[in-house]
Design a protein around this nucleic acid. Sequence first.
DNA 1: TGACTTTTCGCAAATCGTTCTCATTATCAT
DNA 2: ATGATAATGAGAACGATTTGCGAAAAGTCA
Lengths: 139, 139
Amino acid sequence: MNDDAQLETDLRAEGVRVTRQRLAILHVLRMASDHPRAEDILNRAKVQDPSVSQATVYRTLAMLEKAGTVLKNEFDGAGARYELAGGAHHDHLIDLDTGEVIEFHSQKIERLQAEIAADLGYDIEWHRLELYGRRPKAR
Amino acid sequence: MNDDAQLETDLRAEGVRVTRQRLAILHVLRMASDHPRAEDILNRAKVQDPSVSQATVYRTLAMLEKAGTVLKNEFDGAGARYELAGGAHHDHLIDLDTGEVIEFHSQKIERLQAEIAADLGYDIEWHRLELYGRRPKAR
DNA sequence: TGACTTTTCGCAAATCGTTCTCATTATCAT
DNA sequence: ATGATAATGAGAACGATTTGCGAAAAGTCA
Ligand SMILES: [Mn+2]
Ligand SMILES: [Mn+2]
Ligand SMILES: [Zn+2]
Ligand SMILES: [Zn+2]
């Protein structure tokens, strides 16, 4: 597990200045496992550094997304939800009752997507696969 | 091919009043094959009835969506894009260069999605599968 | 048709998440 | 430490969509 000093290294690797605010935001993302919204990230970052502003949260997220460090998910409903990009590609299942986000991956689906696009004469740049469902009522 | 008188029947079937504006909007949707945005629908509807307003376009689309007559697609980028729900379920491939929307359907993928959700203990209510790609440059 | 009730309309103002402006502050190579 | 300049906070602006409100149109039943 990376400690907070690693965050500084990560930022420097991207050639940007290491600011308190960016460290706080990255720390929040490191700790999160719930695909938080910008507003959640702001609130959590403020615990570590009360000076963090909304504008900086959005700016930092946009910057990290461009750098490939962060993934921005535009699920149905309110605003975007973010997560660190670290691991392998995965798609999401959203619980319509709780809002919980569950991750999954299907090599078969990924392959089929590529085949379909190829048949249509396209190369896929990226894709979005989201399942919206609920747990069947106890029975 | 349905004529415009059919539109009136469609509206009555939904138990709402038949207005010039609604007929114009439905007509536009009937003619469209390009997944138009609300703004496009407004502009096209104005040709038939210049009195149609933006608010009515949004209100009518929301109403038709709730009735299951219209599908609202929230693709990446600007605003939502609409289409009549008539046919069979399909997903979309968006051309990143032209914005063109291509429809496709894979029974295999649909089945895999259901299996994945079932394994996770969920029933899928709806899903979104969008492929974003481009035609390989001529070579 | 005309009076009466209900729905829908256009317009403008409000929302909401996100982006931008700009004066001020902080980082960092020197 | 100093200076160049990147990054920040506060709040205004934005764009798509939604909503409140009084006016107009649609449905109802003589
Ligand atoms: Mn995820
Ligand atoms: Mn379609
Ligand atoms: Zn995937
Ligand atoms: Zn599908």
